[in-house]
Structure formats: C-alpha cells, structure tokens
Design a protein around this nucleic acid. Structure first.
Lengths: 215, 215, 215, 215
DNA sequence: AATGAATGAGCTTTCATTCAT
DNA sequence: GATGAATGAAAGCTCATTCAT
C-alpha cells in the first residue's frame, strides 16, 4: 500500500526535527518580542506548545538553544543575500549593489530580525559569544565586497588603490551597520530608498567613475 | 548652635549623594564587565561596598538604577562632546569635525563605554526603554550637525541643498554608529585614524567644496 | 518447519535474559563507581548499551532493577562462600575458618563490592528495603556459624555453652562487619592477614581450646 | 531600662544563628527518617518552618548544609564521648571502658543517630566526602585507645607488645563498628549488655591480665 | 538614613516513566 | 520484544524586594 512507503521510524525523526525547529522559532519570536532576558524556558515552550523537557532533549540546555537560534538567524540573512547575489550579474558593481540591496531589504531588515540581532549582540557576555554568530557574517561580507572593490580599483588607474578598496569596504559595512541601528531606533521613520541613496553617495564619492547615485 | 544647624543635615545629604553615585558607578562597571544580565543587586552592592537596601532607598528598585546609570552614561558622552565643541571654532565644518573627533575619541569610544552602550541597547525591552537614554543623544546630535550642514549648503549654490544636508547628517551619524559597532566587535583591530579618514571620504564626496581628506 | 519452531522463541528468551543481566551489571558498576544517587536510568542504559525502555520492560521500573541488582550482589557473596565451604572440611572449626576467609577474600571484599554494599545499605529508605537483600545474608551466615560454634561447645565441657556460642557468633560477625567498614574507609591501608589474625585472636580468646592464632 | 540591655543588632544575629541551627536539625531529622536521597530542600524547609531561600543564605546550597549536618552529628558523638572520658579515671582500662560504654550508650547509639551515620556514609560519593565527617572520629578514637593499650602493654611483660596493642585497637573499633551495623539492622533485637560483654570477651582474650568479663 | 536577614516567586535543569512506532 | 522521543513533576538554585532593627 502506498501509505506504507514512508517507513515508520522516519516519521518519528521527521517529527523530532520539526519540534527542534519549533523550539528555535519560538525562541526567535520571544527574543524579538520580549528580548533575551525575558526569554525563559517557560516562555519558549509555551510559544512552541511543547513540553519543558524538550529543550534539554534537543539542545542540552537553554544556552545552546539560544546559540542555535542566533546561528539560524544569521543563516537566514545569508540565504537572502545569496538570492540577491544569484540574481545579480558578475560585475563587481552589481555585487556591491546586491549586498546593499539585500542588507536593506525587508526580508532581512524587518522589526523582528533587527530586534533579534541587537538583542543577541547585547546579551553576549564576551567576544567569544558574539563571534559564534556575528563574526561569520562579518568575515563573509567583508571578503565579498572587498574583492569586488579590489577588482574595480585594479581595473582603473586609481592611486593607492589598496587603501581605497579597504576604505570602501570598511565604510560601506559601517554605513549599513549604522542604517540597521537607525532602523532599530526608528523603524517607523526609516526609509529604505534614502538609506540606499546615502550608501551610494558614499560610493560615488569614493569611486566617482564606478558608482553613481540611484536615479 | 548656629554652627551645627546647617552642616549636620548637609553632611548627610552629601553622603547620600556619594552613595547614590557609588551605586551608579558600580552598576556601570558591572555592565561593562559582565553585561546587563549578570548585573545583579548583589554584584552592584558588592562593587559599591554598600548594603543591599541602598538600591531601593535611593532608586526605588534595580530597574530605576539601571536607567539612571544608562542616563549618566549618555551624559558623560555629551560632556566630552561639549568640550570638543568648546575647543572648536564657529565654522560649521569645525563643528562637524568636532562631533566626528569626539565620537571617535578614546574618552567616549573605549571598551567600557562601548560595551555599556550596546548592553543597554540590547537589554531594552521596548522602544520606550531605549528612548530613555538613546533618543536624547540621537536628537541633540542630529540637530547639531544638521544645522551645520544646512549652513554649509545655504552658503553655497548646491542644488537640492535640503536633501544633501539631510543625507550628510544621516550618513555621518550612520557611519559613526557603524564605527562603534566595529569597535565593539574588534576593539584590538580598530584604528581611529582610518575611521576618521573614512568619515571624511564620505563628507568630501558629498560636499567636495567644503570637506577634504585629513592630511 | 519443526526445525524453526523451537529455536526462534528460545533465541529471543536467551537474548532477553542477556539484556536483563546486562542491565544488572551496568547498575552494579554504576553504583560501585558513582553511588546510588548518581545511578540514573540514563547512566545505566548507557553503560549497558541498551535503550531506555528496556528497564521498564524487564524490571517494571528503576526501583525494581536496583533491588534485583542488590539481590544479585548478595548472591555473588554466597557463591564465593559456598566455594570456600565446599573446599573446607566438615569440622566446625573449618567451617568457621571458611566463613572468615571467604569474608576477607578479595573476590568478595574488593573496592567495588564493598562500595556497592554500603551504597545500597545507606540508600535503603527503611528496614523493609534493607531486609530485601541484607537480612538474607545475615540469617544464613548467623545460622551457619552458630551451628558450628554450638557443635564445638557441645563437644567440650564449657559452662554456659549456649551463651558462649551466641557470643562467638555475634562477635565474629560483628568483627567481620567492622573489617568491611575499615576496608571501605581505608582500602589502601587494609591488610587481610591482620584482619584474619584479629578475628582469630577473638576466637582463641573466647574458645581457647578450639582456636589458635594463625601461624 | 533592663529591656534595652541586649542591643538590637545582637537579637538579629542570635535569631539568624537559631535559624541556621533549625535547618541543621531539620536536615538531621529528615535524613534519619527518610534517608539522604529523600531529604530535599522542600522537605528541610518544611520541617524547619522556614523559607526556601534560607538554605542558600546560610549554607550556600544544599550540599553544604548536608556536610554541616553530618559534621554536627559527628561532634555530638564526641560530646558524649568526652563526658564519658571525664567521668572515667585515668587508668588505661578505664579509658577503654569509657570508649566502649560511650559507643554503646543510647545517647549516641540510637535509631536516629545510627540511621544518619549510615545514610551519610552510603551517600558519600567518594573517600574525600566521607573523610569530611568520618575520618575525624576514626583518627581521634584510634589515637585515644591505641595510647591506652600501649600503656597497658608497656606496663606488663607482653611479648610483641606493639602488635598486640595495634590488634587490640583495631579489633575493638571493628567490633564496635560491627555492633552499630547490628543495631542498624536489628534495633529491636539489639542488647547493649550483650554487645558490651562481647567486646570485653575480646579484650580479656587478648589481654587476659588486664580485662575481665563484666560481672 | 542604613542594614542585611528573610522571603518566595520563578528560574533552569534532571529524571523516571510513558507510549507511538 | 525493542526503541528513544516525549512528558511534566519535582529538584536545586537565584534574585529583586521587603522590613524589623
């Protein structure tokens, strides 16, 4: 019978994975809504509709669940970024634009995600804990756009091109970081078009032959 | 005796103020070192060398003490800024430079202050709580440099000068915010000169006739 | 097919018995190493390499497994004792000597066994629970050497021979108990020869015509 | 006014000490009645009629309270022993008799004390934990009666007197240990006079010129 | 004004037991 | 018969707050 095609033990493992994911989702929604401090085991299991023991069964403790949730949150960011990069062309300017557009897109820059991002960062006891989810983003993004700026600089006759590429990378990421903070503090006043325009003002100022203001 | 009439109660008030301040200092040092979550009443009173009851006596609860500490932390920031502004000339460029230099100066951008800043921001349960210490800084800074940029734009023949002034304000503050985050994540790699150079790259790109790269 | 009719269910029963025994062994090793309090279901099934449900399947619960393990531990004691008695002659002195030698032999008095013995005794909630494994040993041993001492006393002209036999029984068992405790507390300092000598000092003092110090 | 003679702050400290003691008493009564495993924080505070937090306030955790209770239990033993020793003469035989009589006296050998003793010993995870309360008794008792036996042996012309003194010490303590176990297992059948007689049978057998059976 | 012992709600975690597979 | 994910009661512990002194 077709019904039996999926073996029984598989179902259980699938369900287990679903529960694992439900706990992560419940954690993220609680962190977004209440912050890390108010995200208690009770709050999480209530939101997930599961039993208390589940957290320790699947993650070995609340701390590990928080880390897993933070990691997944970062992964979601890269999923979106990858989609923007895939849709972009191969030109370095297009790669930079994809990063900027992804970073300011509603799918990653939305009240929940931004609140989660700052909540985890603020809750991190030390550098090591931040690194578990924050440095990955940092390093990958840095590499990605630094390579793009190098390519641009190498193609043209810019003096001190290495420094310019570094400053462009550093400045672009700092600007985007600052935009996220701005969004955190004033989600209702924030305007994605203006933010995008300001980043491109920076880029067209630093590399006037390769970037221009969005029309 | 008239001699004693004033001093006695005065002494008490002075001592009370000293204890109040000791509690705030203890709170800030604990937040910088351990984070908000680990900053318990016990930790605070141990650091201050005072009794448990003191916190409720002077602040009515731990929450209020945290808010008072956050507020003072923001005030310290403006104390430094005011010194930089006093030392600066009246020209709008000088005012902008003073803000940038103050923001990147060791007296405000140091491991303790930066950790405190992000710890409080991450711990804030909601917008209202962030606003208690964050918006003040935001609004004053915004006003200050927006007025400077307006002055610059008004003096020259820049088309769409209002938008340029707004973008310059927004971008400068976002860049500085991003630099703070960068410092939080990589305090050892951070270079104040490079950060300053990048901000002025932005400014000379957006207002080329009025800003130039630091020599 | 007749060939298969018997073996199949037999195999199952053999396997089941093996699992049952594996659980008891795992329990005893855990009790010896970690104590009763630390001997959790998880610890037991991990040591046995079996699934959680097994304990309830075979014993109906952890409590029953502990009792079964304690009982088996006591049985092991009697297995050794029986070997010593079989090897001994029929003379009552030889029987008493066999008991003493068995009790002090490494096969029963070793770190694991002694730890298990005291762990179970200390964990017993009440007399009834101790009785489940402790009294059996008690009663059998008591009977065994009391009969030996009676025989010795009856053969000679000892006044008040009944009391002497009882005191000899009581004293011998108490001494051996004390030696076990000594071994528990100081396993490295313990000397089986000295312990044996002291028991025989007691016996030769109470029944000088029938026991003498080991050479 | 006489009422004020006792300063106020003293009262609080006295009350605190009383609460500390109440927790120890509650712990000992629970251990005697239910065993160590069943002695939960809830059980202890209920018996003491105090709040949950008290245990951590005064002892820093349940474990420390158990250790403190075990230590006090051992101290009570020595209090009784000291009384018996004070009442005894200076002759070594009197000292040995005092130890034996103290050890078998109802004030130390009673259902509660014996249950507590074995419960703590069984619950000890390792030698180090037993040592915290058990070795002290061990060492002091050992010293005390070894010195007494040495004195007896030195006064007389006993060959190999050192070994005899050691065996007498070791044997006496082992016998008393065995008697305690006997009492634990059969508190209703136990007869202190018989126990005493058996110990003196051992002593008069090993040192016939210096000890005799109780009349 | 100042103290710190006391409180108890609420926290994370452990664990024997259950039961769908 | 065997499995191990799931359960939830109960454990030890933390901590802001209270209040008699």
């Amino acid at each position: 019978m077709p019904k039996d095609r999926v073996p029984r033990p598989l179902k259980r493992k699938v369900l287990a994975k679903k529960n694992r994911q439900a706990l992560i989702n419940a954690t993220l929604s609680s962190v977004a809504e209440l912050g890390v401090a108010q995200t208690s085991v009770t709050e999480i299991v209530n939101r997930a509709g599961l039993s208390r023991g589940m957290i320790h069964l699947h993650f070995g403790g609340k701390e590990n669940l928080l880390v897993a949730a933070a990691k997944q949150s970062a992964e979601r960011y890269f999923d979106v970024l990858d989609k923007f990069l895939e849709a972009a062309g191969a030109k370095p300017q297009e790669i930079v634009a994809a990063v900027v557009n992804a970073d300011l897109d509603e799918s990653v820059m939305n009240p929940g995600s931004v609140k989660i991002w700052y909540a985890f960062r603020g809750a991190a006891r030390d550098r090591a804990m931040i690194a578990q989810f924050s440095d990955t983003r940092d390093a990958r993004l840095n590499n990605l756009i630094y390579r793009a700026f190098r390519e641009i600089c190498d193609q043209s006759q810019i003096p001190d091109s290495s420094t310019v590429a570094r400053d462009a990378t550093h400045g672009t990421l700092a600007l985007l970081e600052g935009m996220w903070t701005d969004y955190l503090l004033h989600p209702d006043l924030f305007d994605r078009q203006i933010a995008r325009r300001i980043v491109f003002r920076f880029l067209s100022g630093i590399l006037p032959d390769h970037f221009e203001l969005p029309r």
